[in-house]
Simulated assay, not measured.
Amino acid sequence: MSTTSPDAPRPPLPPFSRETAIQKVRAAEDAWNTRDAKRVTQAYTANSRWRNRAEIFQGREAIQAFLERKWAKEQEYRLIKELWAVSENRIAVRFAYEWRDDSGQWYRAYGNENWEFDALGYMAVRHASINDLPIKPEERKFHWPQGRRPDDHPSLSDLGL
């Protein structure tokens, strides 16, 4: 995919190695755990194409609106992402996140994402498939304070998820 972004490079850049893909995945996880929609959108090309569950949309403004809507609903959101596969400018990720709704019901969402990056390291395409599982509060596994997951917190594989 050719670059269409006037933005500065956003390392690590493709082609990705396993190590640089892991860095890209952790950077995405860290950004999403801020729940700062404007900050998160800066990782995507201006015309990035998304499919998130059944929604399909394009562009940073649409991404920001989607994320603001998402995080207004998904309270106490905590996310873990894990590299699944990498090839050239594409990364496959599996993830899980926990959240509760305004009635107090907790959920664990499980999903997979396929990412494609431009030459400057911005995500140009994102496809996400996600399933929500209602859980009891005592079944929660993500207990760190809101924000970045601590480095010593278990990964999805460590948690058996």
Score class of each variant (00 low, 15 high):
residue 153 H to L: 11
residue 144 W to P: 07
residue 141 K to F: 01
residue 97 Y to E: 05
residue 57 F to P: 06
residue 117 F to W: 02
residue 94 R to T: 10
residue 121 G to T: 03
residue 99 W to K: 01
residue 9 P to L: 01
residue 4 T to F: 03
residue 62 A to Q: 12
residue 64 Q to L: 04
residue 40 V to R: 08
residue 26 R to E: 11
residue 76 E to I: 00
residue 1 M to L: 11
residue 33 N to V: 05
residue 74 E to G: 03
residue 110 Y to Q: 07
residue 43 A to W: 08
residue 78 R to G: 10
residue 85 A to R: 14
residue 32 W to F: 15
residue 26 R to L: 14
residue 33 N to L: 03
residue 96 A to K: 08
residue 37 A to D: 15
residue 8 A to E: 13
residue 29 E to Q: 15
residue 155 S to P: 06
residue 70 K to A: 12
residue 151 D to S: 09
residue 49 R to D: 07
residue 143 H to V: 02
residue 12 P to I: 14
residue 152 D to F: 10
residue 123 M to W: 03
residue 20 T to R: 10
residue 141 K to E: 02
residue 61 E to K: 14
residue 84 W to F: 11
residue 123 M to K: 00
residue 41 T to L: 01
residue 131 N to S: 11
residue 63 I to Q: 07
residue 59 G to Q: 09
residue 13 L to N: 03
residue 70 K to L: 12
residue 140 R to W: 07
residue 78 R to A: 14
residue 128 A to D: 14
residue 52 N to R: 15
residue 134 P to V: 00
residue 47 N to L: 05
residue 9 P to Q: 08
residue 53 R to M: 09
residue 150 P to N: 08
residue 146 Q to R: 01
residue 51 R to T: 09
residue 43 A to E: 15
residue 18 R to C: 00
residue 14 P to A: 08
residue 43 A to D: 15
residue 79 L to M: 09
residue 78 R to C: 05
residue 35 R to P: 01
residue 69 R to M: 10
residue 6 P to T: 04
residue 78 R to K: 14
residue 138 E to G: 05
residue 129 S to W: 05
residue 19 E to V: 04
residue 104 G to K: 04
residue 106 W to K: 09
residue 146 Q to W: 01
residue 51 R to E: 12
residue 49 R to G: 04
residue 126 R to C: 15
residue 61 E to D: 15
residue 34 T to F: 05
residue 53 R to Q: 11
residue 144 W to L: 04
residue 75 Q to D: 04
residue 95 F to S: 13
residue 123 M to A: 14
residue 64 Q to H: 02
residue 28 A to I: 05
residue 90 R to A: 10
residue 34 T to C: 03
residue 124 A to D: 08
residue 77 Y to C: 08
residue 29 E to M: 14
residue 113 E to R: 10
residue 77 Y to S: 06
residue 29 E to H: 10
residue 104 G to I: 01
residue 16 F to R: 02
residue 74 E to N: 08
residue 24 K to M: 12
residue 99 W to E: 00
residue 123 M to N: 13
residue 14 P to W: 09
residue 83 L to H: 06
residue 126 R to Y: 11
residue 101 D to C: 01
residue 44 Y to M: 04
residue 143 H to G: 10
residue 125 V to M: 07
residue 144 W to N: 08
residue 91 I to K: 01
residue 5 S to Y: 02
residue 38 K to L: 13
residue 100 R to W: 05
residue 105 Q to L: 07
residue 2 S to T: 07
residue 40 V to Q: 12
residue 128 A to W: 00
residue 5 S to Q: 04
residue 95 F to I: 03
residue 84 W to R: 15
residue 80 I to N: 08
residue 161 L to Q: 11
residue 137 P to M: 03
residue 50 W to D: 05
residue 147 G to N: 06
residue 75 Q to M: 04
